[in-house]
Amino acid sequence: MSENSSSMSLREYLSSDTVTSMRQATAQRVYWSLRAFLGNPLAVFGLVVILAMILAAIFAPWIATHDPNAQNLSRALQPPGEENWLGTDELGRDIFSRIVYGSRISIYIVILVSVIVAPVGLVVGMAAGYFGGWVDRVLMRVTDIFLSFPSLILALAFAAALGPGIENAVIAISLTAWPSIARLARAETLTMRASDFIAAAQVSGASALRILRRHILPICVPSVIVRITLNMAGVLLTAAGLGFLGLGAQPPTPEWGAMTSAGRRFMIDSWWVVTMPGMAILVVALAFNLFGDGLRDVLDPRQSR
């Protein structure tokens, strides 16, 4: 087998029935998942938008046509045109460039929240589901308490206590976003806690930590990834909402929510000042939702429509 594996074409390698290495087995699984995902045009649209946003964030200085903070009062409130593709705001700043730079802030918030929320939710949920008894009761009551905080109000409280800013917005959003992940992980863990493959691991002598890490985690992770992706749209909207209220990113940072907030005074005469960042929020939130749905169909076939 190993002699002719080098001469095998990539296509044969990925669809062959005789699998000769662990790497090939993994590659095959990725390949078939990818094919299933690419068969869903809406999900692909979501992925493309998210990738475009990430690229825009990375290469913002090369993509942006103007300095996002450069004011030019002689060109204030210009409608979309050749010089300023999406028009200018009340201080003459180029809206297109500000949206491109703003994607950095949005991505920063979304990634930071996900990185905080996923591990915390997974650990709490898996521990509660696996150990049961009083561990479950304590952890789930704590989860209930955090679940009952309205995230925007909590964020307001944080902004009042710690001062407005992106970091505080991230903390506030994370505090209210992890309980849903914990509940999901707990539910998944409960369904398999009594299953024979967990019993078999126990009979093999595996410690609780090993069972959680090697046996329960791989089954929880796909649904958590799906949930996080679908949550990202909500995170983005909350962050924009905080920006709009003046409690998230502070001027002159080109945050999309803050931009819509600043533009609402000129909404009647200069529609583009509010509309352009609003459209950015809409498109990206939609993209996260579509991408999450597509991901769910691939990773978590039980829940697909």
Binding site: M22, A25, S195, D196, F197, A199, A200, A201, V203, S204, G205, H215, P218, I219
Partner: peptide, 26 residues
């Protein structure tokens, strides 16, 4: 515990439930 596990092993009734669905045979 580990010594006991090395000495006493078990085969379960349902082969569809006793193998981890995301682990390869290896």
């Amino acid at each position: 515990r580990l010594g006991w596990c090395r000495n006493v092993q078990m085969v379960f009734q349902d082969p569809y439930g006793s193998l981890h669905p995301k682990h390869q045979i290896e």
